[in-house]
Design a binder for these strands. Sequence first.
DNA 1: CTCGTCTTATTTATCTTATAAATAGTCCGC
DNA 2: GCGGACTATTTATAAGATAAATAAGACGAG
Lengths: 247, 247
Amino acid sequence: MTKEDRGNSGMTKMEAMGGGRNLTYALLESVGKAIVTGRYDNAPFPTEADLATQFQVSRSVTREAVKMLTAKGLLVARPRKGTTVQPPRAWNLFDPDVLRWMLERKFSLDLLRQFNELRIAIEPMAAAIAARASNAEGITGIEAGYQRMVAAEAGDDDPLEADIAFHIAILEASANPFYAQFRDVVMTALRTSIRFTNRFKGRTASLPQHRAVLTAIEARDAEAARAAMLALIEDVMALIADAERAA
Amino acid sequence: MTKEDRGNSGMTKMEAMGGGRNLTYALLESVGKAIVTGRYDNAPFPTEADLATQFQVSRSVTREAVKMLTAKGLLVARPRKGTTVQPPRAWNLFDPDVLRWMLERKFSLDLLRQFNELRIAIEPMAAAIAARASNAEGITGIEAGYQRMVAAEAGDDDPLEADIAFHIAILEASANPFYAQFRDVVMTALRTSIRFTNRFKGRTASLPQHRAVLTAIEARDAEAARAAMLALIEDVMALIADAERAA
DNA sequence: CTCGTCTTATTTATCTTATAAATAGTCCGC
DNA sequence: GCGGACTATTTATAAGATAAATAAGACGAG
């Protein structure tokens, strides 16, 4: 149950909390998306008083949302100067919210390519580390992810979520917090890019290739694990390159 | 240090703003560090009212600091349940503040090794991409970084800052925002780990090795750039491995 | 005119006091 | 026992006042 229909035509209060579990998160979502979409590129960011008026919320809510956006690198506030939007290079791209806003803004094939360029660096290495150093729990997680993909093949699980689970299990099996940190990034990016990958039918995340990664890790063969994962992502890259040529 | 034994010459107001440019940032710093240091591992996180009382600041300041810590993944707040510390896996390790708190907490050789394990994935690839795709501006930046290292060798610049500038220039030359994003992470981690690397005398960041990276990028030789950068970081890894054996 | 200082206006920062909303825990009637 | 109303606690929201910081303009001395 989402929200009961009040039946009125008012619809104020942050558009009936369209963004999150409370006003602050709703405002965070609205303003964050607006910033990333470039609404303030050629206009000054409003003062906190204006923001509160525009969105019909109290200054407390406004200030707390602004503080969160500041923590994510999107804004900076100074007395008398007002609140200003930071240049994109300052945005924390590895913050799930920020990344999601960027991916949702219009879906850029370019950004998707750049993201997969990152995956090429991270995931094969994570697979190699996992092959070398993961414990039983880590291996079990990867196997579970693979089994979900098998189930998805038979229609018993969501293909995308299963695919994501597999990749995340490997990141976590690396037992390196820096690699595990990419959990949310990979999750967010893969979820959002579904619109793209789904455009290519039959692209059901090659089970054999994933199996190759799994068996290499189980066999503690770091080099094979790295190579198998690399091949997997480079297939995606090839797909993107094709799309770029087509466009 | 408890709060009881103040009583002397005033010194309230968040201990004379010991943390940042205002009360909110001072509180952010204090509480962030406390969380990462584990002060609340075996104790419940205080309610916002208690926090305000303990640190002698208003609820506004308290709430705004808590919201920033929430945005960084350290806290989560729910009505009636209170504010609770998130498990470390939820912390945004790529947030400069969070990373700094983690590195400062006691200096873990283990964390340093894990960080360099990440560098092995990122930086050689960034160098390769830079060799393949960087523009004139990117190359100039790398050359400037190298020149700073040369100057540092002669005592005309800070060796650590010059070294950092070189590595960051490469990340930025990759023209991939995801790689450029590691700018702050690398900066923070290298700065903080100075205490470690300095313990080894003569470790003045081999100029020839850095030069090899530069020339490879200038020559647009991606593979050579990757290899040169990899060699560079693996030297650091060897250093860490030695230290781990010694301990 | 030029430079430094002083004043002023604007904006964030802080504090205070209420009230609302959410919900974990308790108690009650059956 | 068990479901549901009740209560107490904690965050969420609002509103208003004051403080602090500082950019911009006014002013005055040289």
